[in-house]
Design a protein around this nucleic acid. Structure first.
Length: 190
DNA sequence: CTCTGGATTGAC
DNA sequence: TCAATCCAGAGG
């Protein structure tokens, strides 16, 4: 039910980041259905100095402040895209970065965008998975409930299946333990 | 307008 | 260890 997903994602991004582990994303790629499982996430709250939304709403972060359940995509280092699930109530700039996914279906479509790599290397990083799944700025603001890219929530994982660590690649708020991943999952980033 | 640094990746 | 490659955001 639509309202279920909205209700769940309107909560705090630290909670949502854990809740999203194990859930699935599906997208059509070259006419093939691609389905992946979220295995690693990071939470970015508006009050968090490491978040793009920390200094308030800007053109880039506009969708972070919009309704939950939409996709926030950003371009970085002059060549990479990363994707987030917008969380929190509308008006609050929070999101969950998808850092790694495990392919479940549509391997060939993913491989065609990242040729010559092992299964594990295909989607074990935030920019890698966007490349493999064909996600770029055109997808910014996509509604994940009903668009060409959809999120399918799965039951919450047991707490003992979730590992907490500090986030990767940030220079602010490095102490916050807001990176989460599924224990023993080989598709988690290095 | 100029300047700085980036929620990364892959090559050396 | 470091370059790639370009843009967002801040400050003048």
């Amino acid at each position: 039910m639509k309202t279920d997903m909205m209700t769940i994602l309107s909560r705090d991004p630290v909670w949502c980041a854990q809740r999203l582990l194990g859930s699935e994303l599906t997208v059509m790629l070259d006419g093939h259905r691609v389905r992946v499982k979220i295995v690693e996430t990071e939470a970015y709250h508006q009050s968090d100095a490491a978040s793009h939304s920390y200094k308030g709403r800007t053109p880039r972060t506009d969708v972070m402040f919009g309704p939950p359940g939409h996709l926030y995509v950003y371009f970085t280092y002059g060549m990479h895209y990363c994707m987030n699930v917008v969380t929190g109530p509308e008006g609050e700039g929070s999101a969950v970065l998808i850092r790694a996914v495990e392919p479940l279906e549509g391997w060939e479509a993913l491989r065609s965008r990242r040729p010559g790599l092992s299964d594990v290397q295909l989607t074990n990083g935030p920019a890698k998975l966007c490349k493999a799944m064909g996600i770029d700025m055109r997808w910014n603001g996509t509604n994940l409930q009903s668009g060409a890219l959809t999120l399918h929530l799965q039951p919450a994982l047991a707490a003992d299946q979730i590992i907490h660590t500090t986030r990767i690649g940030i220079s602010q708020a490095q102490e916050k333990p807001w990176r989460f991943y599924i224990r023993d999952n080989p598709y988690v980033s290095k």
